[in-house]
């Protein structure tokens, strides 16, 4: 089997690195559920978690193994080859650069929200998203941002009572 060089890992051709990472995280989670469930004294509390996590661990191991062994892949899913072709095609449409831009735009919301609160994170996100994906030029972005910011703050602040978004308007508590 020929190898694919993801960061020098030498994985078999056809391996979807992101899927593999997702499966490993889910395997970690289900193992934690299984091990922690074993420590519960009462059967009513540990019965179902064990009953659910055990087959989950098995299926995740099978799915991970199917990336490395064609025989397991056939056992798990005979349609893997057909679908992997579709995924290769769709992967061509998005490159690492676009994925990075997308996650930067999400971080542009999460980081200011954590440090300064939601009120600040909204305009930061709007500006970053608009510029990263080339939606509007700088001038139009700077004009549109306060309008959207104000509209969203008014709607969420007064209709849905998010105090972090309330603008201190005179006469409105």
């Amino acid at each position: 089997m020929s190898k694919e060089d993801y960061f020098g890992l030498g994985l078999p051709v056809g391996t979807h690195l992101l899927e593999l990472m997702m499966l490993l995280i889910l395997l970690g989670w289900s193992t934690y559920v299984f091990v922690e469930a074993l420590t519960f004294d009462e059967f009513a509390a540990r019965g179902l978690p064990i009953l659910v996590s055990l087959p989950l661990i098995g299926l995740l191991v099978l799915e991970i193994a199917s990336n490395f062994s064609p025989r397991v892949a056939t056992l798990v899913d005979r349609f893997r080859l057909e679908e992997s072709v579709n995924i290769e095609e769709s992967e061509n449409k998005s490159n690492a650069n676009e994925v990075a831009r997308f996650f930067v735009s999400l971080l542009s919301f999460a980081v200011p929200a954590t440090l300064f609160g939601l009120f600040i994170s909204i305009p930061v996100y709007l500006i970053v998203f608009s510029r990263l994906f080339d939606i509007l030029g700088w001038r139009k972005t700077l004009i549109a941002t306060p309008i959207i910011w104000l509209t969203i703050s008014l709607i969420f602040g007064y209709f849905f009572n998010i105090y972090a978004l309330r603008i201190p308007l005179p006469g409105l508590a």
């Binding site: 889910l26 989670w29 289900s30 659910v52 996590s53 087959p55 989950l56 299926l59 995740l60 099978l62 799915e63 798990v76 899913d77 349609f79 679908e83």
Partner: peptide, 11 residues
């Protein structure tokens, strides 16, 4: 793909 469906369900 029942395996993937079952994984999602159990998760």
């Amino acid at each position: 793909r029942p395996v993937k469906g079952t994984i999602a369900l159990l998760v």
